[in-house]
Amino acid sequence: MIDEPYRWLEAVQNRREYIEDRIAGGLPMVVIAGTPGILLIGPRASTPKIFEIYDRLALGCLGHPADLERVRQAAIDAAHVEGFTRSPHDVTARRLVNYSLGPALKNAFEQILAAPLLFRGLLAELQADTSAAADNIWILDYDGTWRTAAGPDAARGCLVVGDKQKQAAWEKLCAHPAAHTADAAHPPAPRFPEGPATTLPELAGRALRILGFALSPGHGRGDSAAEIWASVPSDVAELKRLVLSESHGSLEAALLDRTLLRPGAAVTFRPATLQELAIA
């Protein structure tokens, strides 16, 4: 099969379709950076989807639990060996993704005779200095592609979701952050709040809105991304009801807490309660 280029392409294409099909039902995961830290939040599934990787690194993901485990374990192994042989400061998301996870995921994807990895995830990195502007979020996919969101993009929030159309709709929305208006006299209204969220409830509110977008049924009716976004309630109480009803009544949330940063190595990852997020 390998020595026939056409069949190899076909096999890769089939593989992509198979994976997309298998993860289509994957629950959304939102990662968003703000002044208190980086919040990872998603509907609580039967298995955990948010994991601590290293002192300032956390992974939120969707896919097959066994595959998530594999990727998570590879990331933890690589981070700890690096942190031990060099120093915890040398463990960066950029190196982890560029030189370890990305190539490994691509390699696994292209080994067409082995079972594919069902994985899509967000790797969050809290910066050692204290500004939210320096935080990074890496979007990683099963085929080894990655993108990074920093500064305003990280403060706006990042979403991964199993549904291909929904994911595409979100990317489109992010590419055009301002809503078009018919009236030329008024400048286009920004869709997302300006600047990083300064409190945990505000951070959670923004994350809930993105989760609401991912969970809203608009696509079934053929609505555009902008229409779905506009239809998502902005009121937290209403959002809460929407998200909780769509996510079996519970959320999984964790925080890379900026207040836990110390000059040396320090664990910044901690579970976030719905009380402190003002969601309960």
Partner: peptide
Amino acid sequence: MMTPHLPALA
């Protein structure tokens, strides 16, 4: 640095 772990995923 991290190449030793690649086989686990590959």
